[in-house]
Write a protein that binds this DNA or RNA. Sequence first.
DNA 1: CGGGCTTGGTTCAAGTTTGAAGCAAACCTA
DNA 2: TAGGTTTGCTTCAAACTTGAACCAAGCCCG
Lengths: 169, 169
Amino acid sequence: MTTRWLSPDEQRAWRAYIAASLLLEDTIDRQLQQEAGMPHLYYSILANLSETPERRLRMTELAEGLKITRPRLTYAVARLEKDGLVRRESCESDKRGSIAVLTGEGMAVLERTAPGHVETVRTALFDRLTPEQVGQLEEIFTSVTAGLQGEDGPFEGLPWRRRSAPPCS
Amino acid sequence: MTTRWLSPDEQRAWRAYIAASLLLEDTIDRQLQQEAGMPHLYYSILANLSETPERRLRMTELAEGLKITRPRLTYAVARLEKDGLVRRESCESDKRGSIAVLTGEGMAVLERTAPGHVETVRTALFDRLTPEQVGQLEEIFTSVTAGLQGEDGPFEGLPWRRRSAPPCS
DNA sequence: CGGGCTTGGTTCAAGTTTGAAGCAAACCTA
DNA sequence: TAGGTTTGCTTCAAACTTGAACCAAGCCCG
């Protein structure tokens, strides 16, 4: 089958997206590195943990939620643990398991740095969008995520996909 | 001033965007690593070069177009040069300058791998969007780019910004 | 039980990215 | 035209990411 190249509209959209996403991530990483001494992903790990009832999550659940691979998470959590922001506990009901727990210090860092982070996201992104565009953004990217990890799509083989979710709270 | 947190709508949009952009980049990187033996950025370098009249660009122009820092580009081009896909020439009119030139072999790799790449982008993204959404995508991210590197915005200090564009074709 | 398969997680080496520092050529400006 | 500053690019060390290999614990079925 002959290649279906991108239309001019699609080309422009694609390039706009690529450029902006690089700039945006760089901006956020830089701001968080300044204020919190860690890149965006590491901040997201703390944020994710802080939102669970017990401020704890199994490694695999965390990796799945963040859409990253497990080795990447292992490395990141090791660093956060060294900094005292996260602690690791082993899972009682499944002795293979490992649970990341947000420490008090981790929570404190999060609370201290959240306002600056939100401000950056706001200034760089949301302050420039109309309410309709916010809705469009959500719709577009929710759909993309569904396609990339949904049961039906052509990308089943992505390595971070999991089949079951162990509880072990 | 008290923090303006994200509204629920904004939260959802932000999370959808973060998740999808990670999945999308991973998917594209993986596909290109398979088919072309290089990550997305490196492919983009070849693609950018191929679109200029003489298939050549000054390092700084290239970095600026790709929205990446110069050390990052230096490293990437060094690798591509080692692989024979890019050659470096020194600039006559400005002896500090260095010019990246796409080789015949580089062009061949690009032509061989472009269809698979486009197919991935299409499957992961554009096949899931309506024509209106393609337009929305472009508008949103064009605006974000403008904000992050425009003359007026609050992010003047980003290190990749340049003031002038040397010709030195 | 006992062998094989799967799952949760880490480790390892190789590759990439980052920000600061360095270096040489070009550009002032007095 | 000399001295200082800027510009273009690279180098360096430290941090991060990747994918493959690994290990131990659970699972499955006989």
